[in-house]
């Protein structure tokens, strides 16, 4: 069995050379009004998108979304960025998401990923986990965990992506 793993890894490395940028996989999500939507309909007419995975019980996630909230109007004005918050709360807590957002005063687009299909599809280990997508919907930057101040680094990346610059 271990041999097959090495083979597979070697195989994947070879493949990697010609591989495209990661895109958001197509999985169904739920809007807060109960309608379903497909994750590939998350768009921002060519402007960058921040995809942030969170849950009502995850304190660093809430700290991160609150920190971004303080700057969000300015970020939107300067770069046209849109933040989409993906809640991975399961049926235990999913009914709390709408009242929770209202009390926080967030004006993000929020979708439910109740059985974590998108979380799994984007290979998220732990939350908070934040992705930055460019205008073509490709993942160009990502970050796991949250420390106060991380939002400034996220914004540097957003500015570069909005200006069509490379992040390297």
């Amino acid at each position: 069995m271990p041999r097959s793993i090495f083979l597979l890894l070697a195989f994947s490395l070879v493949l990697n050379l010609g591989l495209a940028q990661e895109k958001v996989p197509t999985v169904p999500l739920k809007k807060l009004n109960g309608e379903t939507l497909s994750s590939d309909s998350i768009q921002n007419s060519g402007k960058p998108i921040v995809l942030s995975f969170w849950a009502t019980w995850c304190k660093p996630c809430i700290r991160e979304l609150n920190a971004i909230h303080d700057w969000y109007d300015q970020w939107q004005e300067e770069t046209g960025v849109k933040l989409v918050a993906i809640s991975i709360d399961d049926s235990r807590n999913s009914s709390r998401v709408r009242p929770f957002i209202a009390s926080q005063g967030w004006d993000y687009q929020v979708y439910l990923d109740e059985n974590q299909a998108l979380k799994r599809g984007l290979n998220v280990n732990n939350i908070p986990h934040t992705f930055l997508l460019n205008g073509q919907g490709e993942v160009v930057w990502q970050h796991t965990g949250y420390m106060p101040g991380d939002e400034a680094h996220l914004y540097e990346a957003i500015q570069k992506v909005a200006a069509g610059k490379s992040l390297d």
């Binding site: 709390r96 709408r98 009242p99 209202a102 009390s103 005063g105």
Partner: peptide
Amino acid sequence: SNLSYTRGSLGLILG
């Protein structure tokens, strides 16, 4: 069963 009500920043939940 779960019932939630949201108005402004007020949230009520009954389960």
